[in-house]
């Protein structure tokens, strides 16, 4: 009875908030707090030389999707923006699919090594991931440029006479993102494959399933949460990619990230940039929520 009315001392009840305060303060100032200001800025008027004028306007949001024709003032879709949205989405999707095609067998290979070797193979996957993204993008650039190793090699072998223009194309961006984000696909798939019970595979073989059917009907469905996680982990940074399209797309092949940057540089339209940033954030958050739901649903069935 005494226990029920016993209240713990103040320090014990609130100590976690004291402990949390430094981290939360830093994150508030330099991570999630400023996001609200972005939202506010997206409803302001653009200043002539960058910055904003503090008066309410929905122009930025309007301009995200539509534009007024310069000559006859008619309304139309913002084709340039939509093209960039589409390229971002398409490149991110293709990157994700190709990463899955390469990443799943790689994760499978690692998960089927003897337990002692697995961490070492995973380290081999993770080392490039923890090295500078810019450097890895630069490494790809050197590989595929006109004077790069791939073209030099092909020309030396006589396969081609002229270098193939690979740099500054969508293909280059896709290859770059694939290279940079592949470990993010391998990691969660490996995690679910490592937990995977190969007795299920034996059971399927025992019940007359051949190799392909074992893969399609048992291994892939059971490891689906890992596959979804990996796909989302690749898709999200690919949608928001900035460095890779800038270096490998050469400024002409823009993705959403570059379009946003443009508004704060030459474009001098901060509200539009802010609105575009919010659009990107919404897309990313929506796909994340979708993932958590999907993974949760799957996970519940596994017990």
């Amino acid at each position: 009875m005494a226990d029920a009315t016993y209240t713990r001392p103040f320090s014990e009840r609130y100590s976690h908030w004291i402990l949390l305060s430094p981290a939360l303060l830093i994150l508030f100032v330099a991570a999630f707090g400023p996001l609200f200001i972005v939202l506010i800025y997206s409803f302001l008027t653009a200043g002539d030389y960058g910055g904003v004028v503090w008066s309410f306007s929905t122009d930025a949001w309007f301009n995200v999707f539509a534009e007024r024709d310069m000559f006859d003032d008619t309304l139309g879709f913002a084709d340039a923006h939509l093209a960039i949205f589409w390229r971002s989405f398409r490149l991110a999707a293709v990157t994700t699919v190709v990463a899955l095609i390469f990443g799943f067998p790689t994760a499978y290979f690692i998960a089927t090594r003897p337990p002692k070797q697995r961490n070492l193979w995973m380290l081999l996957i993770m080392v490039p991931f923890w090295t500078n993204l810019l450097i890895r993008t630069f490494a790809i650039m050197e590989l595929i440029r006109n004077e790069g190793v791939v073209n030099s090699l092909l020309m030396a072998m006589g396969v081609i006479n002229e270098p193939i223009q690979m740099l500054y194309t969508d293909f280059a961006i896709m290859i770059g993102m694939l290279y940079v984000y592949l470990p993010l696909m391998v990691l969660p798939i490996y995690a679910s494959l490592e937990r995977f019970d190969f007795a299920l595979v034996e059971a399927a073989y025992d019940l007359y399933a051949n190799r392909l059917r074992v893969l399609w009907r048992v291994i892939l469905p059971v490891t689906k949460p890992g596959i979804i996680a990996g796909s989302i982990l690749v898709m999200i940074p690919a949608l928001g990619a900035y460095v890779t399209p800038r270096v490998l797309g050469g400024g002409k092949r823009m993705m959403l990230g570059n379009l946003i940057e443009l508004q704060f540089g030459q474009g001098r339209n901060w509200p539009l940039g802010a609105a575009l940033a919010i659009v990107l954030l919404i897309i990313v958050t929506a796909s994340m929520i979708y993932y958590v739901r999907a993974a949760g649903k799957e996970g519940a069935g596994h017990g």
Partner: peptide, 20 residues
């Protein structure tokens, strides 16, 4: 014969039921 061509079926120790 591979396991999937043998007219033999197994009840596994921990059942190995397909969770999905």
């Amino acid at each position: 014969l591979p396991p999937y061509k043998r007219p033999v079926n197994t009840v596994f120790q921990n059942y190995a039921l397909f969770p999905h």
